[in-house]
Design a protein around this nucleic acid. Sequence first.
DNA 1: AAACTATACGAACGGTCGTATTATTAGTTT
DNA 2: AAACTAATAATACGACCGTTCGTATAGTTT
Lengths: 208, 208
Amino acid sequence: MEKVDGRLVRGDQTRRAVLRRSVDIASVDGLEGLSIGRLATELGISKSGLFAHFGSKEELQLATIRAARRIYADEVVTPAFEVEPGLGRVWALSESWLHYSSSRVFPGGCFFQKVSHEYAGRDGAVHDALIDVHVEWMELIEETVRAAVEAGEVDADANQLAFDLNAYYEAANFASILHDDGKAYDRARQAIRSRLESVVAAGTTLPW
Amino acid sequence: MEKVDGRLVRGDQTRRAVLRRSVDIASVDGLEGLSIGRLATELGISKSGLFAHFGSKEELQLATIRAARRIYADEVVTPAFEVEPGLGRVWALSESWLHYSSSRVFPGGCFFQKVSHEYAGRDGAVHDALIDVHVEWMELIEETVRAAVEAGEVDADANQLAFDLNAYYEAANFASILHDDGKAYDRARQAIRSRLESVVAAGTTLPW
DNA sequence: AAACTATACGAACGGTCGTATTATTAGTTT
DNA sequence: AAACTAATAATACGACCGTTCGTATAGTTT
């Protein structure tokens, strides 16, 4: 399955359609609110036909996480990595994250914030998969900051700065969703700018 | 009902027991994961008897939120307000929040972070009640900061500083739950201290 | 003692959940 | 055109959901 002569077969198209809808639903109602019957109805296909693609609810959830990770990488990481390493990339990463959140790539805001909170206190394969993504993401911020430190543009504890930046991102996403209002993004942008200004090396050109 | 000659009657005792269990369950599994059948089984009472106390699932959820708010006020706000207004109280509020989170007053960490994320993107009475609590909480931080500004101990935009502080609290709670590890509290404490140091007026005694 | 009220119970309702089994359709290969 | 396979659908299942109903018990009031 998957591909024949480079051409997609029916089954794979369905799978993609299912997952695209899954990530959207889960970003609003979580991976539990994501029910197979509801998905099938919304897509106009049969519950059993949909189910056959994944074999279990948990496998659907894991596939949904992988699909969301791909979108996240495309929307947040790729644009930021077009900027050269250094303070500029740190700023670009922050901007692309806030844009990813505010433009509602997922209708419920950041997919991972939603479902990671949902599964934070439980255990199992879904929980573990979400930890992996979170660790990967935090290490990516840390590495981006560290590059700026090594370039001599910033003087800071990379892990601490990564923690702070991520805290601003998430606070903005959460507040904007809860109050259906974009003000929080301005607050976050201000927080990020101040925090970075407190650690830039003298003589470094500011990217904003 | 409620009280007779200052003595609690049966029904109220049951209600309290239910709500004490409800907030614990909801802090881990959310207000949806809070099912009436499960609650009844765990408490060793009948589903219908329990249900009769609230009349609907939504009313149970709202009562659970009110119960959690009372506990939150006792655990976070009351201790901090024993310190006089000013920088000291800002610091005390931060410390009591981190203690509230890390000591697992609710087994799933901060009750409100959990369920507010759960309902952030929906609407209805539960969503509205959670907004009210969130607004109340943010205003409380802002007012606490503003008092420090007016006391001349701090020079900052109160709303911005409140946003930042709250971001650190939530980031610490989330990370500690997801990774089952208390390191994040040290990071948060460091972030709070640095942020406050950046705005203290010269000559002010630091409370840490 | 009788009447009344609060509290709790067991059983059942219609609905939805995830899952399994069996059938049907569509596409490709021979 | 026939045979085969991959994809989808139909149907049914047991478990649990929130909710309703009728009833029994216990406490209070008269």
